[in-house]
Lab assay of single mutants.
Amino acid sequence: MADQLTEEQIAEFKEAFSLFDKDGDGTITTKELGTVMRSLGQNPTEAELQDMINEVDADGNGTIDFPEFLTMMARKMKDTDSEEEIREAFRVFDKDGNGYISAAELRHVMTNLGEKLTDEEVDEMIREADIDGDGQVNYEEFVQMMTAK
């Protein structure tokens, strides 16, 4: 299944994987998964984290390695993001709930994920998604960005 991913997608997933893999040992533990999910405003229980890991832990060693992570991402993409997942993601970014993602809100979430971005990089990300040019990202623009192939 992971063989249907483009090189660009694999590179993006590698970057995402390293955000989860806090200690850089090449595997994601339940603790690391929990840290990232909490930084995104989720509050999973230990059991939920274990279930999430077990779902993709092909070799049964209790952690997720990069090939397992790729399989999980490929699977998720095949079920292409349901509207509800996209709306949920939008809410994570839209901290003040005004229906727009500002540069400050984007920077806040990315920083929580451990991504240190310059102001230019954040502005560039907003510009790429900002179709109507108002300097922020509304829900429609967010959907376009998330579903762009």
Results as ranks from 00 to 15, higher is better:
N138A: 07
T6A: 12
K116R: 12
A104Y: 05
L49W: 09
R75S: 10
I64F: 13
T147A: 12
T45I: 08
T118Y: 13
L40T: 04
K22L: 04
A16K: 02
V122I: 11
I131S: 08
M110P: 04
I10P: 14
L70R: 14
D65F: 05
D119K: 09
S102A: 05
G135D: 05
R91I: 03
E121P: 04
R38E: 14
T147P: 12
A16H: 02
L49Q: 02
D23F: 01
D96A: 00
I131H: 14
E121V: 08
Y139A: 01
N43G: 06
F20A: 01
G41N: 02
A129P: 13
F93I: 03
K149Y: 14
D96E: 09
L113I: 10
T45C: 03
D134S: 03
Q4L: 10
D132N: 09
E84C: 05
G133T: 07
G97I: 05
E88R: 02
E141K: 06
I64G: 08
A103K: 10
V92A: 12
R87G: 06
Q136Y: 02
A58W: 01
A89I: 10
D132G: 13
T80S: 10
L117G: 07
E105H: 15
L49I: 07
D94G: 09
G26E: 03
D81F: 06
D51N: 07
D59T: 15
E83V: 13
T30M: 03
F17K: 15
M146G: 14
P44H: 09
P44V: 14
A11T: 13
R127H: 03
V36Y: 00
K116D: 00
E128F: 09
L49C: 01
V137P: 12
T111C: 07
G26D: 10
D57I: 03
E32W: 08
E124I: 09
E84I: 15
A2G: 12
Y100K: 04
N61I: 09
D21R: 09
A11Q: 05
E7S: 02
E55V: 13
V143K: 15
L19E: 07
E83L: 11
D132W: 04
V143F: 03
T63Q: 05
K14H: 02
A104K: 03
Q136N: 08
L70V: 11
K31Q: 12
M77Q: 15
L5I: 03
L33M: 03
N98Y: 09
E7I: 15
D119C: 15
K95T: 05
D21Y: 10
D3L: 08
G62S: 12
G62D: 10
N138K: 11
E85D: 07
R87V: 15
L113C: 11
D94N: 11
K31D: 02
E85Y: 10
N61P: 06
K22F: 06
F66H: 04
E105T: 15
D51G: 11
E68P: 04
G97Y: 00
A74D: 08
I53Y: 13
N112S: 13
D3Y: 06
E105K: 06
V36T: 15
I131V: 12
I131Y: 10
S39V: 14
N138L: 02
S18D: 14
A103I: 10
K78H: 03
R107G: 13
N54A: 00
G99T: 05
E7G: 13
T111E: 14
G41I: 03
D25I: 06
Q136M: 00
Y139H: 11
G60S: 13
L49T: 02
Q136H: 09
T71A: 13
F90I: 07
T111F: 06
T71H: 06
A58S: 07
D23I: 02
G60R: 08
E128S: 00
M77V: 11
T118K: 09
A89G: 00
A129N: 02
G114H: 10
K116H: 15
M77S: 14
I64S: 09
N61A: 14
T30E: 06
A11L: 08
T6R: 02
M125I: 09
D81Y: 07
E83P: 02
D59C: 15
A11I: 06
E83Y: 04
N112H: 08
S82N: 14
E84H: 02
A103C: 00
Y100N: 12
E12P: 04
A47W: 09
V36S: 07
L49A: 14
K78P: 00
N98C: 07
E55T: 00
T35D: 04
G133M: 09
K95I: 04
L106H: 09
D57L: 02
V92G: 09
L117E: 07
D23A: 12
K149R: 12
M146V: 12
E120P: 15
E48W: 13
E88G: 10
G99I: 00
I10Y: 02
G97A: 14
Q9G: 08
D81Q: 03
G99S: 14
V36A: 11
Y100W: 02
G41Q: 01
V36W: 02
D79H: 08
D51I: 08
T111V: 00
Q136K: 00
T27F: 03
Q136A: 09
E68G: 12
E48V: 10
L117S: 12
I131C: 07
I64P: 15
N138W: 00
A16L: 10
E124F: 06
Q42H: 13
Q42C: 04
A16W: 10
V56Y: 01
S18C: 07
G34S: 15
T35C: 09
S102M: 05
S82A: 14
T118F: 10
A11H: 01
D81R: 12
E141C: 06
F142G: 01
E124G: 11
E12I: 02
A16G: 11
L70Y: 09
N43A: 06
A89L: 04
N98E: 15
E121M: 01
Q4E: 00
K76S: 07
